[in-house]
């Protein structure tokens, strides 16, 4: 069972994998991840794939609006893990 800090680390690691040229540590937890890091839809999909693999939490497309920010993604995953 991952705690919130560990989930944040998992997400940051996934961001680094899909967009190695951005600094995931600089992400504002309340900002839209895509806007803040300049991710396109392909990057965002790869991020969802990576986070899902690492946490075992499946994020259906219909829930993408619930994982738009780092904080929201952490809440989403922690409530389903």
């Amino acid at each position: 069972m991952l705690n919130n800090n560990e989930i944040i680390e998992v997400i940051q690691k996934s961001i680094q994998e899909v967009a190695p040229d951005v600094n995931a540590l600089e992400l504002n937890p309340e900002e839209d991840i895509r806007d803040d890091l300049d991710l396109d839809s392909m990057d965002f999909m790869n991020l969802i794939i990576s986070v899902s693999k690492k946490t075992g939490v499946k994020i259906p497309e219909s829930d993408y609006n619930q994982v738009q920010t780092l904080n929201a993604m952490v809440d989403y995953i922690s409530s389903r893990i």
């Binding site: 839809s41 392909m42 969802i48 693999k53 259906p60 497309e61 219909s62």
Partner: peptide, 17 residues
């Protein structure tokens, strides 16, 4: 597209493009 993606794994999902 939603129906297709519901049946697919995350890796296989299609973007609308």
């Amino acid at each position: 597209l939603d129906a297709q993606n519901n049946q697919k794994t995350v890796e296989e999902r299609l973007l609308i493009q």
